[in-house]
Design a protein around this nucleic acid. Structure first.
Lengths: 267, 267
DNA sequence: CAGTCAGTTTCATTATTTGAAACTTTGTTT
DNA sequence: AAACAAAGTTTCAAATAATGAAACTGACTG
C-alpha cells in the first residue's frame, strides 16, 4: 500500500487521507469503513479528528468526506519549500518558449513519478491540474531518466515496486527490459518515451543531477507522433541538458547561503 | 494559533506541519524546538513520524526538515475533490479572456481567504504559485464579499479573528468599519478592494452563492490604479455575476447525480 | 583534550487509544 | 403508523501507546 503504516496513531490516521484520496470523490463513512482495516469506532474517531483538523471536510448535506482545504495550503508551502519548482520556473519558461512543446518537471515520490510543474505550449493556462499528479516510473520518460541515474539500491527497490502494467504494445512490461533500457539511458544521458504510456504520445527526458551526481528530478519535452518523431525530439537534447544543468546550479547556489551568518547568533 | 490543537496525538503532530510551513524554508530540529511547546523527545518523535510518513522530508546534508512531497500529491486530490476549482475552471478561463485582467477564485479557510485558482491575463503561465496562498479576509475583495454573505454567527466568529493590520491608509482597520462595508456589499451584491491591501492594486469581487444562499466562494477581477479605476471595474459587474451564477449552477448539477443509482446496490 | 551543544535513546509513569457492545438517529418497509 | 433496518454515534474497561526527565552520544569548538 506504499506507506509505512506503523507510525502509531499518526500514521494510521494519515493513511485515512490516502484512502479518501484514492476514491477521487467525496465518500461516505460507510464506504471508508467497508475498505478499512480499522474497526468502526476507531475509523470514526480518525475521521472526526481529521475533520476537526481541516485535513478532511464534511458535507453535512451529502454526508460525505473529502480531502480538506488545509492540504491545499500546506501543499503550497511544500511546493515552494521542498521541490525544484520555484528554482526551475524561469528555466522551464524559457525551455517551453524555445521548443514550443509541452514541458514537464518531475521528482520521485516513493516509487512513483510526481509531476511538479508543467508548461503547456499550446494552450497557455493549465497547471495545478497537472502539478501534483503521479505517474508510473517504468513507462514515462522522466521516470526512466531518474531511475537510470539513481543509486543501484534505490533503483532496485523502486523497480521491485513497479506494477509493469502494459499500457501500450510498446510498454516495457518486465524488470529485465527496463534494466536494459536504463543502461542505454545511462550511456546516452537521456531517454525516450516511445508511446509506452499512451499511444501517439512520445517524449524525451533528461535527469537533473546535482554536482555530486544525486538525482534531483527530471525534465521532459513531450509531443505527439502526429507532429514529430523520436529523431525530431532528439534535437532538443542540447537545450534540455543545458536547462537541467542550469537548474542544478541554481539549486546548489540556493540552500540558504546566509544560514551560517544568521544562525551563528547562538542563543 | 488557528487550529484546534486538542485532537490527541494526531492533532499535535499535524500542528508541527503548520510550524514548519510557517518558517517558509527548511528548518533545523533545534529551531522547531525553540518555538515548540512540546518537550524535546516528544517533538523529536513527531518529526520522525512525519518524516516516515513523507509529510516532511529530511535533508541529511543540511540537517533540515521541510514539508514533504506527499502533501503535494494529497493536495492535488483535495483541489480536485473539494474545491470549486475544477468546476469553475472553464468559466474563469472565459472571464479572464473577456476582461483581460487578472482573475482570482477564492474560498474561506478558517478565518482566512484561500486562493484556489488564478488567471493571469498578462503573463500566461503562473498558477500553482498562487493557488494555495492565503490572504486576510478583512482587506481583500474576495474576503469581504464572502464575509458579507456568510451567516451572521459565522461572520462574527471570523471578524473576531481578524488582525486588522493597517497595510495601507485605506485599510479598514476595525470591526465597525468592516461591518459597515459588509452592509454595503450586501446591498450592492459586490464589493471593491480600494487599495486596502496593497497600494495601487484595486479589485472588484462578487460572492459565489448556492441556490440556498450559502457562500461557496468568491470571484474577483484585479487591476491597478494605473490602468483603470473603481468605476472602470464596476463595468465588469454583469459578467462577474453571470460567471458566479454559472459556477454555482454547475456546482449544483454536480454533487454526484448518479450517487443513488450507483450506491443503492445495498451490499 | 575538556567543554559545549545539537541530536538521540532509554524507560518507568501516565494518559490515550482501542473496540465490543450498546445506543440513537434516520429512513424504509409492511 | 408501527416495526424494521441501516448508518452513524457513544460508552467504558482493558490494552496499548505516548510522554518526558534524565542520561547518552557524537560532533564541533576553543
Amino acid at each position: 500500500m506504499g506507506h509505512v503504516t506503523g507510525d502509531g496513531t499518526v500514521g494510521k490516521a494519515l493513511s485515512v487521507l490516502d484512502q479518501v484520496a484514492a476514491f477521487g470523490r467525496p465518500v461516505r463513512f460507510g464506504e471508508l469503513l467497508a475498505q478499512s482495516s480499522y474497526p468502526k469506532p476507531t475509523l470514526y474517531r480518525f475521521v472526526q479528528t481529521l475533520t476537526n483538523q481541516h485535513m478532511l471536510t464534511y458535507d453535512p448535506e451529502q454526508q460525505t468526506y473529502a480531502l480538506g482545504i488545509r492540504l491545499v495550503r500546506l501543499a503550497h508551502a511544500a511546493w515552494e519549500q521542498s521541490t525544484l519548482a520555484p528554482i526551475a520556473r524561469p528555466h522551464i519558461d524559457a525551455l517551453s518558449a524555445a521548443v514550443g512543446e509541452t514541458v514537464h518537471l518531475a521528482q520521485l515520490d516513493n516509487a512513483q513519478v510526481l509531476y511538479i510543474d508543467k508548461r503547456n505550449a499550446g494552450n497557455p493556462v493549465q497547471m495545478y491540474s497537472q502539478a501534483g499528479k503521479v505517474g508510473p516510473a517504468y513507462c514515462t520518460g522522466v521516470g526512466k531518466a531518474m531511475l537510470a541515474f539513481s543509486a543501484p539500491d534505490v533503483a532496485d527497490r523502486i523497480i521491485a515496486q513497479q506494477s509493469f502494467h502494459r499500457f501500450t504494445p510498446q510498454t516495457l512490461d518486465n524488470a529485465k527490459a527496463l534494466r536494459d533500457e536504463l543502461q542505454n539511458i545511462r550511456i546516452n544521458g537521456y531517454g525516450f518515451d516511445r508511446e509506452e504510456h499512451e499511444p501517439g504520445i512520445i517524449c524525451i527526458a533528461t535527469p537533473i543531477l546535482s554536482e555530486s551526481g544525486r538525482v534531483l528530478g527530471a525534465l521532459s519535452v513531450t509531443s505527439t507522433t502526429a507532429r514529430t518523431n523520436l529523431a525530431g525530439l532528439e534535437g532538443y537534447v542540447p537545450i534540455l541538458q543545458d536547462t537541467a544543468t542550469d537548474i542544478a546550479r541554481d539549486a546548489r547556489n540556493w540552500s540558504f547561503p546566509d544560514y551560517e551568518t544568521k544562525e551563528t547568533t547562538r542563543m
